[in-house]
C-alpha cells in the first residue's frame, strides 16, 4: 500500500487533533463509522453566533487515509460558514489526498462526519430556540 505524500504528511502531523466539550451549546459533534469496519471518525465544530465554524477538532480510529481525510476536513471547514462547509464533497478530499480507489470510503466518511457535526449543532440550536 503506497500512500501519497499528502496522506503521509497528515498522518505524521495531524492537524486539529483533540476534543471539545460535546455538551457545550456552541459545539456540534459528528461520530461516524463503526469499529467493526475499522473506521470511526469523531469530528467536532465550534460555531460562532453568526454561523461560522471558528474551530474544529477530530479524533479518528482508522487507517492512514482515514486519519488524513479527517485531518484535512478539519482544516478545510475552519473559517467557513455552516452552509459552505456543507458543500464539501468527498471527491474533493479524495482528489486532494490522491486516495486510491480502495480508500475512497475514507473520504466519504469524512464528508459524513462534517455533515453529522453540522446536523448535531443545528439540532442543538433548534432545541434551544424551542425552549
Amino acid at each position: 500500500m503506497a500512500y501519497s505524500e499528502k496522506v503521509i504528511d497528515h498522518y505524521n502531523n495531524p492537524r486539529n487533533v483533540g476534543s471539545f466539550d460535546k455538551g457545550a451549546d456552541d459545539v456540534g459533534t459528528g461520530l461516524v463509522g463503526a469499529p467493526a469496519c475499522g473506521d470511526v471518525m469523531k469530528l467536532q465544530i465550534k460555531v460562532s453566533a453568526d454561523g461560522v465554524i471558528q474551530d474544529a477538532k477530530f479524533k479518528t480510529f482508522g487507517c492512514g487515509s482515514a486519519i488524513a481525510s479527517s485531518s484535512l476536513a478539519t482544516e478545510w471547514i475552519k473559517g467557513k460558514s455552516l452552509n459552505e462547509a456543507e458543500t464539501i464533497k468527498n471527491t474533493e478530499i479524495a482528489r486532494h489526498l490522491a486516495l486510491p480507489p480502495v480508500k475512497i470510503h475514507c473520504s466519504v466518511l469524512a464528508e459524513d462526519a462534517i455533515k453529522a457535526a453540522i446536523a448535531d449543532y443545528r439540532a442543538k440550536t433548534t432545541a434551544k430556540v424551542a425552549e
Partner: peptide, 8 residues
C-alpha cells in the same frame, strides 16, 4: 488502534 495505521 487500527492495525494498518499502526503499521504506517
Amino acid at each position: 488502534v487500527e492495525g494498518e495505521s499502526l503499521i504506517l
